[in-house]
Computed example of a mutant assay.
Amino acid sequence: MKFKLLVAFVLFATVTYAQQDSKQDSLRVVNRLGYNNPSKLTIGGYAQIDYNEPDGSAPGKLDVHRLVMLFGYKFSDKVSFLTEIEFEHVKEVYVEQAFVNYSFNTAFNIRGGLMLIPMGYVNEYHEPPVFYGVERPGLDTYVVPTTWRELGIGATGNLQNLSLRYQAYIFNGFISYKDGEGTLRGVDGLRKGRQKGAESVIHNPNLSVKFDYYGILGLKVGLAGYFGETQSDDPSVEGSTVGVSMVGLNASYRFKNIDFRGQYIYSSLSGTEDYNNLTGKDLGSKMDGYYVEAAYDFMPLISQNSTKQLYLFSRYETYNTHAATAGDLEKNNAYDRQDITFGFDFKIAPGVVVKADYQWRTDAVEDSNRLNMFNAGVGVMF
Rank of each mutant, 00 (worst) to 15 (best):
H126C: 03
L219I: 08
K355L: 03
D336T: 05
E330T: 02
K74A: 11
K91Y: 08
N369G: 15
E84C: 02
A107S: 04
E293H: 04
F346D: 03
V292A: 12
R66A: 13
Y253P: 12
A47P: 09
N305D: 11
R28S: 15
G289E: 12
A98D: 04
A168W: 02
P300I: 15
Q195V: 07
T241Q: 10
I85G: 01
T362A: 04
Y177L: 01
F260R: 14
I153Y: 07
T14Y: 11
A8Y: 11
T106G: 08
F104C: 11
Y94T: 09
Y291I: 05
G228N: 09
F174T: 07
G152V: 02
G197D: 06
G44Q: 01
G157K: 04
R66E: 13
L67T: 13
Y291P: 10
L5S: 15
I170Y: 12
L283P: 09
T156H: 02
P54N: 15
M299I: 02
V187F: 00
T14Q: 14
N320V: 08
G189D: 09
P300D: 14
Y290E: 13
R185S: 12
Q304R: 00
L301Y: 10
G180W: 10
N123M: 10
N172R: 08
E293A: 10
V144D: 15
G133A: 06
G239C: 13
N277Y: 05
Y166R: 11
G222H: 06
R136G: 00
M287T: 09
K256D: 15
A13E: 08
G262F: 15
V10H: 07
V7S: 15
S26N: 05
A326F: 09
A8I: 14
Q231P: 01
L190T: 07
G152D: 13
Q359D: 15
Y335S: 12
A18T: 08
